[in-house]
Design a protein around this nucleic acid. Structure first.
Lengths: 162, 162
DNA sequence: TGATTTGGTTATGCTACATAACTTTATTGG
DNA sequence: CCAATAAAGTTATGTAGCATAACCAAATCA
């Protein structure tokens, strides 16, 4: 089945081209923020390619995964857990709902809020997504080695709590 | 009809608030792209705070640093070295020029291009910027330790070349 | 010299992420 | 009990980042 052609101008972040001339990066070589940014851009580019066929973006994968692991969470809780403002989360969750991957179930005891759940279709999609993510992850591990890969999570988490 | 205006000034990316409820991140815990993104957001938030007084963004600091280290580079070369599209680079360099930090010197032997240089004002500002960046970096090192910090650059670079 | 390439620019559009203000429903304190 | 306040969700809006297409002028190539 031909997946929907991704909307008009949806393109992957490009990985920078190596310029012709030698450039001295000076202090940038020891700025972790700079290195992290460049690494993250490359990872996202690979993620886009990997997930192109299913038309899922990193943030969508993260939302779906949180809902899968924590069915029934409120919008605000999912948004908070991912560091997304609730105002910006609305459009994201509506889009996933329209695609039939997520459903918002009104709560009886609190008429303001919804519980978020994967639809059957959404739940059925997750194994494929996790498979793609694993393949993507494997490509990174191939680059830096399994041990280095494993060693990165602790410092990243510590930095995230900065 | 027209809501009341919004136009706030440039604001720093916010660091996510820890939600009240425990959330299971599932496979996200072993997705480096996710960890990297969260870490990078936190670092940028700290950078914003650190550089608020001088009103310099991460990308601006990187541009200024490249020009400082490599005076005379073309716009395209600076843009390429930082992974910025030349079309998007125009506005950035114009802004820095308007602020009097950078000058574009027309070349005699190639009337299409400019050589980029720091102005005296720009050059005078750099020590302060590097000082702020060092303080910012020190905060990260304090979090993860100097050895870990130093060990991160190699894998980040390898990933960036993915 | 005509064709192609290169440096720089403008126009345009989408996504991410920020704040302000609003509605509806819950909660709370006097 | 009820008025004040808080919380969940929504809409409106503004900016930065990054993408493509189309273009000019100057250099280079065949």
């Amino acid at each position: 089945m031909p997946r929907k052609r991704a909307s008009p101008l949806k393109s992957a972040p490009s990985v920078p081209t190596t310029s012709g001339r030698e450039v001295d990066y000076g202090p940038l070589n020891t700025r972790l923020g700079y290195g992290l940014r460049r690494a993250q851009i490359a990872i996202f580019a690979d993620f886009f390619v990997t997930f192109a066929a299913v038309d899922i973006r990193p943030v969508q994968y993260s939302i779906l995964t949180i809902i899968e692991q924590n069915p029934g969470l409120f919008q605000t809780q999912v948004a908070d857990s991912l560091g997304i403002k609730k105002t910006n989360f609305v459009a994201m969750i509506v889009a996933l709902e329209k695609r039939g991957l997520v459903k918002r179930v009104p709560l009886e005891h609190d008429k303001r809020s919804y519980g978020l759940y994967l639809t059957d279709q959404g739940a059925a999609l997750m194994p494929e997504l996790h498979g793609l993510a694993s393949a993507h992850e494997a490509r990174i591990i191939e680059r830096i080695g399994a041990e280095t890969h494993a060693a990165l999570f602790a410092p990243m988490k510590a930095i995230a709590a900065l």
